[in-house]
C-alpha cells in the first residue's frame, strides 16, 4: 500500500493527514470499547453462576452472596433428585446423540455425494425443523404422542431429542463433506475399493472432525433442552426440568456447581479438541 503511494506523484498524501487518521482512530477504539462492553454483557451471568457456586445462602434461594464455602462443591448430590435428573439427562443426551449422529452422517453423505430427484425437498425438510420455534416442535410432538397413545416418558424424550438434533448433525457434517475433494474417493474406487470400503476407509476418516463436532453439538443441544422436553417428558425429570421445577421453591447453590462444571468440562473438551486438530494438521 505505502509503496504505491510513494511511487505515485499524484497521491494525495498531503491532503489527508490527521483528520482521517484521527477519525479512524476514534472509530477503531470505539468499536473495541463497545465490543468489550458486549463481551462483558455476555460473561456477566457466567461470572455470577461461578461465584454463586461458592455461596452458602441463608434461605432457600441462592440470590444474595452471604458466605464463601465449598459446601455445594463437596455435597453436589445432597439436593434430593438433582443427581438422578443429571444422570437421566446424560443418558438421554448420549443415546440421542448416537442415533442422530449415525442417521445424520449417512443422510449428509447421500445429500452431498449423490445427485437425485427430490434433493431440494430433502434439504427443505432438514432446514425447516431448525427454523421452527421449539414450542411448536414440542407441542406438535405431544399431540402426536397423545393421539397415537404413546405413553410419555424416556422414550418420547429420546425420540424428540433425536429428531431435533438430526437437522443440526446433517448441516454440520454436510459442511465438512462439501469441502472434501471427491477425487480422493474416486482414487480409492479406481483402486477397486467398493463403495462401502471407500466410505469407511477414505470418506469417514476425512470427515471425522465434522462428525465429532456434530456429535458434540447434538449432545449439548440435547443435554440443555428444556422447552421440547417439557412437553414430552411426562413424569420424567431431566436436569433442565429439575431446575425449572425447583426454581419456584428453592435454588440451591448445587445448581450453580453443575453449571460451572458443565462450562469447565466443555472448555476442556474444546481445548483438547483443538490440540488434537493441530497435531493432525501437522
Amino acid at each position: 500500500m505505502t509503496a504505491v503511494k510513494e511511487s505515485d506523484p499524484y497521491a494525495p498524501t498531503e491532503f489527508r493527514p490527521k483528520k482521517v487518521g484521527f477519525g479512524r482512530w476514534v472509530r477503531e477504539h470505539l468499536v473495541t470499547f463497545f465490543g468489550i462492553l458486549g463481551l462483558l454483557y455476555l460473561f456477566a451471568p457466567i461470572f455470577v453462576v461461578i461465584v454463586f457456586s461458592f455461596n452458602k445462602p441463608k434461605g432457600l434461594f441462592n440470590y444474595t452472596f452471604t458466605e464463601f464455602s465449598f459446601d455445594a462443591w463437596t455435597g453436589v448430590c445432597d439436593v434430593p433428585g438433582m443427581c438422578d435428573s443429571l444422570w437421566l439427562s446424560i443418558r438421554i443426551a448420549f443415546f440421542s446423540t448416537l442415533a442422530a449422529t449415525i442417521l445424520g452422517t449417512i443422510a449428509a453423505f447421500a445429500l452431498v455425494r449423490h445427485k437425485f430427484r427430490g434433493r431440494g425437498f430433502a434439504n427443505i425438510l432438514i432446514f425447516v425443523p431448525m427454523a421452527t420455534p421449539e414450542v411448536v416442535v414440542g407441542s406438535s410432538l405431544l399431540v402426536l404422542f397423545v393421539n397415537m397413545g404413546v405413553p410419555l416418558g424416556q422414550l418420547t424424550i429420546w425420540i424428540a431429542h433425536t429428531m431435533f438434533c438430526l437437522s443440526f448433525v446433517i448441516v454440520t457434517v454436510k459442511a465438512r463433506l462439501v469441502g472434501l475433494d471427491p477425487r480422493l474417493e474416486q482414487a480409492a474406487q479406481d483402486l477397486y475399493a467398493n463403495r462401502v470400503q471407500t466410505f469407511f476407509r477414505i470418506t469417514f476418516p476425512l470427515i471425522m472432525p465434522g462428525v465429532v463436532a456434530a456429535a458434540m453439538l447434538s449432545f449439548s443441544l440435547s443435554f440443555d433442552d428444556f422447552i421440547i422436553t417439557n412437553f414430552n417428558s411426562g413424569s420424567e425429570v431431566t436436569f433442565p426440568m429439575f431446575v425449572w421445577g425447583t426454581s419456584k421453591k428453592a435454588l440451591p447453590p448445587q445448581i450453580n456447581v453443575i453449571g460451572t462444571a458443565m462450562l469447565l468440562i466443555a472448555l476442556f473438551v474444546v481445548i483438547v479438541g483443538r490440540a488434537i486438530g493441530k497435531r493432525r494438521a501437522r
Binding site: 451471568p45 457466567i46 453462576v49 435454588l251 453443575i258 453449571g259
Partner: peptide
C-alpha cells in the same frame, strides 16, 4: 460460544441475581 456450555436455564436464573 462459552456461555452456551452452561445450562440455558441456569444462565437465565443468573440474570435474576444481576
Amino acid at each position: 460460544i462459552a456461555p452456551f456450555f452452561t445450562s440455558f436455564l441456569i444462565r437465565t436464573l443468573a440474570w435474576t441475581t444481576i
